[in-house]
Nucleic acid binder design. Structure first.
Lengths: 375, 375
DNA sequence: CTTGGCACTCGGTAGAGTAGAGTGCTAGGT
DNA sequence: ACCTAGCACTCTACTCTACCGAGTGCCAAG
């Protein structure tokens, strides 16, 4: 047999490994990686035979078995039941993710999709984010989340009052990040177009250029009618600033969850979560604040999503936080692909926003960025 | 054997009924109704015994059996297999819906929810519609769709150009129905604030008060810089008008589908449909154009939704089309409840929009409307 | 025309048996 | 000291069978 001679003595494994499994010797790592890869692909418990053959693990199934038993006792794998194959635990996935060779590459077809998307995308910011969420979900077959830039660093570019009915006024503000927010208010008295015009001018001169978070009460100018209207408007503007980021979230392809999970009950509960924007936002922020780009299973401390993994990638414009993209899927999601897709889309999105805003990001940065990804 | 002679002559039931079953005698109708009601509640095939007892059908199970057999041969019921109970066909549901005693009433708790919602709801139009879709899905445990007013009757109230970057401009338009639409454009040359201001004024004077559909090419005014910008802006505005209604659609509670259908495959395909706004819009419009408020199974001619029923209710403001609300669920959905909820929310929504816009709808109309529903 | 009775049908469930995948252990080889 | 082939064992998934029960259609009596 060809199996007679192999890595005779790749043996020093158990020696160098710390008890809690902070580090695994090379062969264990290779086996774990093979198990995870296989399980991600098939969703079936992986037996030692399937692993014995893969390149990088040129040992017999018997050896694999004993290594797998060790990996199980260290908490990286579990058996659904005796005499079944092994399944990775959250800890197993975590090791896999942390030790992934490359950050992962998208297939050429998928990268092409991304490039074409960002070449073609146009229209308004929200629309772009929404379509980006669909792109991401398309690439990864996961549910995707795209979170727009937080308002807290945004500056007001325009304030306008538009009369809709005699006492009904729409306050429209445009922020420097390209988002438009709006809120309708009801007045106690009829307001003429001239009055609204005057109030608009007052708000413009007061607030344009100011950070949206800095909007506060307005001093009286003397014209009490104008002041009344402007005061109410200033109030809702500051409210908009407070509520901050929550508006700007787009979920793409939740239906992917229905195919990713086979238990209907799981689908239902996960989708219910996804419908609660606040929860999703805080989940993503929390993961990012902890400096992670992947949260697996219970790592995010959010019980209803214990069977899910979350992948996040920041979007930054000129070094500033400009939101994030995220992926939600089963813990056995394709991490290399998901990470690659999330980071690539996140990068591109940031570059696109920068370009659109004509902010400090230079064309070179974008170009370099891009060629490095292509090469 | 008992099998020696049968089919004596309970045969003449076929006699009085028209071949296509346009009309059913009272007892058949009562039995059909009982079967549908029971099936809606339990999702289990309904046997003759369960029906024999219900008020309105005070006959023995044997009689019910023969009537059910007749109903089956007329196409109102089917048996999943011999010696199972009966399940309504689409035709059966159709009869049920068309002959429902009342348009259906919501339970007091649910009506209370609706009233509270419309008392408390505030903020901008889109937000209200979105929250309404959640309300509806809450009330009915179906996926809900709320479609905003079509733009085609809307008049432009305001046009504004806001500079975001040196060559990046956001076109913001406010329509008379309270919606705000926006689109960013890229210029080939840098534009100063003054230039944008001038172009804004030009667009304002040209288009404010005009129906959004009437926006067309702009004549030259002489100042070519201003004209260039204004022309591009006019173009995107007319595009916004064209794309019309598609922006304004809100889907609430798609996760309900995951509990309503037990087959994961069905969940996936239906949800995929729901993610395609265009399709949903045309579906609702189509059903409404055919003068229906319910489309059951294959009635809507949309194969992927053959196992679904769609309930729609128009939203009208002062007699004009102002969108619609819809519900999507399994064909065995609770039609009385769904119809009642959809119509009630549709009505209230129309009244609320009217009130907000201060349009021709008088306070009385609203008040009457409301008390009639309450009484 | 209705109803109780009866024979029949057929899906769902429970139990037994089997095949197969996978394991842990051990003895032998390098 | 480690790897590997072989082997006995375990346990799930699947099949087959029997059976229960809900439900039906038909009939004969009221």
């Amino acid at each position: 047999m060809t199996t007679t001679d192999y890595g005779t003595r790749q043996a020093e494994k158990g020696r160098s490994s710390r008890p809690t499994g902070a580090r695994l010797d090379e062969r264990k790592a290779a086996i774990l990686e093979a198990v995870v890869t296989e399980y991600i692909g098939t969703a079936q418990p992986v037996g030692s035979q399937h692993i014995a053959g893969v390149p990088g693990v040129n040992v017999s199934s018997a050896t694999v078995r004993s290594e797998m038993a060790a990996l199980e006792s260290e908490g990286y794998l579990v058996q659904p039941h005796t005499s079944a194959g092994r399944i990775p635990t959250d800890k197993g996935y975590r090791f896999f993710v942390d030790n992934m060779a490359s950050p992962g590459v998208l297939g050429p077809a998928q990268r092409q999709k991304v490039y074409r998307f960002f070449d073609q995308v146009h229209g308004e910011m929200g629309e772009m984010l929404e379509r980006a969420s669909r792109l991401l979900s398309d690439l990864t077959s996961c549910a995707a989340v795209v979170m727009g830039p937080p308002h807290d660093s945004a500056v007001i570019r325009s304030v306008q009052l538009v009369g809709l009915g005699p006492r009904s006024v729409l306050v429209v503000i445009v922020l420097s990040d390209g988002t438009v927010d709006k809120c309708s208010i009801e007045l106690t008295n009829d307001a003429s177009d001239e009055l609204l015009e005057a109030a608009s001018r007052r708000l413009q001169s007061e607030f344009v250029g100011a950070p949206v978070l800095a909007v506060g009460p307005l001093g009286r100018s003397g014209n009490s009618d104008v002041d009344d209207v402007a005061e109410i408007a200033a109030h809702v503007i500051s409210e908009i600033g407070q509520k901050g980021v929550c508006d700007q979230i787009f979920v793409g392809g939740p239906s992917r969850l229905a195919v990713a999970f086979d238990a209907v009950e799981t689908v239902r509960s996960v989708m219910t979560i996804l419908e609660q924007q606040m929860v999703v936002v805080s989940l993503l922020r929390d993961v990012m604040d902890r400096g992670l780009s992947v949260a697996i299973g219970e790592e995010h401390g959010f019980a209803p999503l214990a069977s899910c993994a979350v992948v996040v990638a920041p979007v930054s414009v000129d070094g500033h936080d400009a939101g994030a993209v995220g992926l939600l899927g089963p813990t056995r999601m394709n991490y290399p692909q998901a990470l690659a897709a999330a980071h690539m889309v996140g990068d591109r999105l940031g570059a696109r926003i920068a370009q659109r805003l004509g902010s400090g990001v230079t064309p070179q940065t974008t170009a370099t960025d891009r060629s490095s990804d292509r090469g």
